[in-house]
Amino acid sequence: MNKIRLQICLPVLLASFFLLSCEKDEPDKTASMSGLWIQEKITVDGVEMVLPDDAKSLSLLIEPNGVYRTYAKDATDKEHFGAWTITDNTWLEITADTWRLNANPLTQTPANQWAKNHVLTRFTVLNVSDSRLEIRLKTYEGEKKYSALFVEESRPLITGDNLDKINEEYKTLKTYIYTFGKEQTN
């Protein structure tokens, strides 16, 4: 009798395990990320930034193949792109064009004062729904300012007057929260 019970219960338990493994406790953020998002606002340490015109109209297209593209119609460098992924259903990791100061920039020619890299940046996904995306980034002020996150700002010519200020920007941590609204596409 016990043998019969085991023969019935074991497969049923196995079936339940496989079925439950398909379910997730939290909604899958990866599936919700895809679409065309329009940047609405950015806050820095809780205070809303005054966005320049080129950042007001920023479009962020996230596609399910792991590639994103941005377009800022009024910016000099209108388009940027990179890779994206969601890890632990919590973090949005993207690769983005980033500019950093070369060593001893004052001794360099203007063209060699800044170096471009394409590096990984990690955001925390605060909220993603059918209509809204909120992501948080804690980083150095200079990293945000001189990276394509998501509009690339012009980089100043480094002089003895502004070098200390820019170095300070790369030592000052800030928390940025980006809010996007979703555009319906076909």
Partner: peptide, 27 residues
């Protein structure tokens, strides 16, 4: 970085959709 959504791939016909930014920032 543009890629294609496969709308149809039945072995005889193929239909591919692609999205690109237009000058206004839409698609």
């Amino acid at each position: 970085p543009a890629a294609y959504y496969v709308l149809r791939a039945d072995g005889k016909t193929l239909s591919l959709k692609r999205q690109d930014f237009n000058p206004g920032g839409g698609l």
